[in-house]
Amino acid sequence: MNLFGETENWVFKLNPILIKYHDRKHPLAYQNLYQLLIMVILSAQDSDANINTLSPSLFLRYPSLQSLQETKPIELYPFIINVKYFENKANWIIEIARRLKNDINIPLNIKDLTVLKGIGRKSAHVILREFNKPAQGIITDLHVLRVAPRIGIVLSTKDALKAEKQLMQLFPQTIWGNVGMAISFLGREICRPKPNCHNCPINSSCMYFINNNLH
């Protein structure tokens, strides 16, 4: 049963965006697992575009976890000073480097990733998806929190975990790795705060589009 009391095949209804975004790489311009780990930490409450701009110089100076082990957080400041909450993030990055010691020790499972400072469920899901690991949940970022209720898939909430649990109950685990990112890409490109509904590939299934008589 969906939120409106009728049985709905949301997998079928979202199929256009599942196909459209299936092989789309995450917008963070990483080159390896180490870079993605650092970039997802830096991107929290900041923009991917900002992190993409500053990361080359950061990684040129610090190309691996090993290179960060003897670094003090303050030494990272010049590279990330334009990132929101850069002081906290510098502390988390150095703590992770000292904990893991080597890039090969970066975990690829939800339990061990979320133990690391600065890595929440959303960031962990992104890492697992990008490295083709079995999904252990659904990416639920700010775009998903805006778009999924608008479509009518979940109840409106600011609680990412609550929304993720609703999504996990609705979709089969076989597509968990793709459905959250597909909704996120839709939110980035079309279903913006001011949505471009007439160019949306799933507008015929969207409650916002239907209820606002946008046909």
Rank of each mutant, 00 (worst) to 15 (best):
C200T: 07
H26V: 12
R188D: 00
V83D: 00
R99I: 04
L36T: 02
L42E: 10
F185R: 08
S57R: 14
K20E: 15
S156T: 09
N9K: 04
F12V: 05
S43L: 02
K162Q: 14
T7W: 03
L170T: 15
Y77L: 09
E130S: 07
V40S: 01
N203E: 08
P63L: 02
T7L: 11
K111F: 13
V40L: 06
H26Y: 12
L142P: 00
Y85H: 15
I51L: 11
Y77G: 06
N109Y: 12
C191Q: 10
L68V: 14
S55Q: 13
P195T: 06
L42R: 05
V154E: 00
N109R: 08
V115E: 14
V179L: 02
S204Q: 15
R99F: 14
T157Y: 03
N212W: 01
L37P: 07
Q169F: 08
A29L: 12
G120P: 12
A163E: 06
E75G: 08
K89G: 10
N199D: 13
N52M: 07
P63Y: 04
E6P: 00
N102K: 15
N109C: 13
G118F: 11
T114Q: 12
M207P: 00
I139R: 01
L145N: 02
P56G: 04
L58N: 05
L14S: 01
L33Q: 10
S57T: 11
M168W: 09
T7Q: 12
F12A: 13
N132L: 06
P73Q: 03
I93E: 11
N52V: 09
F86M: 03
I138G: 00
I104T: 13
L3H: 06
D103F: 10
G120T: 10
F4P: 02
I138M: 00
N9I: 07
F59R: 04
L42D: 03
K158Q: 07
K20F: 09
I38R: 01
I183D: 09
R121Q: 05
L58C: 08
Q136F: 08
L36N: 05
L37K: 06
D141P: 11
L142D: 14
C197V: 05
V83E: 08
I93G: 11
K133S: 10
M168D: 05
L3V: 01
K89M: 12
T157S: 15
N9Y: 09
I139M: 11
Y62Q: 08
H22F: 14
A44P: 03
Q136S: 15
E6V: 13
Y85N: 10
E70N: 15
G120F: 11
T71D: 01
V40A: 02
T140K: 02
K122V: 02
S47W: 05
